[in-house]
Amino acid sequence: MIADFSTIVARDMGIRRGGRWILRPTTFGITSGVIGLAGPPCSGRSALLETLATLRRPSVGTLELLGHDVTGPAGQRAVCARLGLLPDRFGWAAGVTAREYVSYAAYFKATPKHAVDAILQRFELSDAAELEMDMLPADLRLRAGLAATCVHRPDLVFLDEPLASIAEPDRDELIGLIRELAPAVVVTATDAAQLTGWCDRVFSIVRARLIESLEVPRSWSRVPAGV
């Protein structure tokens, strides 16, 4: 079902790569909250995320983000300032500190300098800001990645397997952080089980089809997203 106020609206949207369907034409709408997207490696999960983030174009169908048709360059330009993307195994320039890394992102998001300090503080990175990214433990590195992704306060954030390398004790704290990133957050994982319990909706990619899991325990989703 597609609500009038949907953040993401895909109509008959399909993605083909190398002559095969990564995602068969499908129609779906996402309003807000934390949306889980599960699929094993090479299932096309990252390609779908990049398509939703406007870095790739859908092969067929239309895609609207935040009320703009992003299949054309005008729509992409209109929404790109309101999007954030953190890829799987995200990269950074060698030798940069956490602050330089976030500042680098802030420059391309045309965000004022004070926003960097603010988001470093918000993500509890002030003490680690001058450490090189290579030296940071996985959870702090993810916090820096999230800070770079959200330094411009986006309305819609895409995170590709953000918790893949995070140890169990740190996960709950980071899940709380992820839920507060933006009004709508799309998170991926290899298995739907990793997403259930804290995502408001969970989709799975099965044989190039997008299928929604109807039973999602709502322990975390009681906390409103986008606070």
Binding site: A53, T54, L55, C80, A81, L83, G84, L85, L86, P87, F90, G91, W92, A93, Y104, A105, F108, K109, A110, A148, T149, H152
Partner: peptide, 12 residues
């Protein structure tokens, strides 16, 4: 290419 996620989704 590894930094495309920062530079690609840019208002610039």
């Amino acid at each position: 290419h590894r930094l495309g996620y920062l530079r690609g989704l840019s208002v610039r």
